[in-house]
């Protein structure tokens, strides 16, 4: 009897490709969400100053791609949750798979998606600027672009990528925990209720910003990167370990 002995990396690669095909629809959702965010951002934030000395009114319109990045993070969070549902897991096991290969291919998928989402969220900043010129037609006082500050753009890319990946893994870990025991649903619901009752209403972006603050307060790039890698790998290892004995198609 001839038995095929595949390597883990071989199966992970195949599963990664399978996951790209299987989740193609989530990328179209992402594009739609980003387009919506661009439209919202073009309106901009108006702040007007009236100078009594020379009776002039100065209106400053701030255009930013913050919304795009926050929406990308929310998208990543939701997709992260969806990747570990029972259904998705059993779909992976319709083909060759172990729990480890399934997690590793999910991780590759999240890395890839974060990269795509990060790049498009950052580049949407340029689109917003372009549309800003057309609609507002005002003088540009400050702008950082790839031309005058390539390092800044690169930094934006890296940070956007890192935050999106982080949100992916937070969603992924929550969903993995829920998979192991439904009690976690109640636990997370409780946290949600506590969190929303504290400031009256659910404010997703605010929590996202809180996370950004935790990591963003770091001045050293090296430490910032280290913090991220530890957080991401920690979450991934936890999700892998807690679901490593889970039963599928059951």
């Amino acid at each position: 009897m001839y038995l095929n002995e595949p390597t883990l990396s071989d199966i992970v690669k195949k599963q990664f490709r399978f996951k790209l095909n299987a989740n193609a629809a989530s990328f179209s959702t992402f594009v739609l969400l980003q387009a919506g965010a661009i439209v919202l951002s073009i309106v901009g934030t108006n702040s007007s100053f009236f100078y009594s000395s020379d009776e002039s009114l100065v209106t400053i319109i701030t255009l930013s791609n913050d919304t795009n990045i926050v929406i990308a993070m929310v998208w990543a969070f939701v997709l992260g949750i969806m990747l570990t549902t029972r259904n998705k897991q059993s779909e992976s096991f319709s083909f060759v798979s172990t729990r480890l290969s399934n997690h590793l291919s999910n991780f590759l998928f999240m890395l890839f998606s974060s990269l795509i989402a990060g790049i498009s969220a950052v580049l949407s900043g340029s689109a917003i600027k372009l549309f800003g010129f057309i609609f507002h037609g005002e003088m540009v006082v400050h702008s950082s672009s790839i031309v005058d500050n390539p390092n800044n753009l690169l930094l934006q890319l890296v940070t956007a990528f890192a935050y999106i990946l982080l949100l992916f893994l937070i969603g992924y870990s929550i969903s993995s925990l829920v998979q192991t025991n439904k009690i976690f649903i109640a636990l997370f619901a409780l946290i949600w209720i506590l969190a929303t009752s504290m400031n009256g209403s659910w404010n997703g972006p605010e929590y996202a910003l809180a996370i950004i603050k935790f990591f963003g307060s770091e001045r050293s790039i090296l430490l910032f990167t280290l913090k991220f890698i530890v957080a991401i790998l920690g979450l991934f290892v936890i999700s892998t370990l807690i679901t490593n004995r889970s039963e599928v198609r059951n």
Binding site: L3, N4, E5, P6, L8, I11, N21, A22, N23, A24, A25, N87, K88, S90, E91, S94, V96, S97, T98, R99, L100, S101, N244, R249
Partner: peptide, 22 residues
């Protein structure tokens, strides 16, 4: 959790599902 067993076996049942868009 055995890759060799998974690669050389297949279980066909009504739980065998594929992603929605496929």
């Amino acid at each position: 959790n055995n890759l060799k067993v998974s690669a050389n076996s297949i279980l066909v049942d009504d739980g065998m599902n594929f992603p929605y868009p496929m």
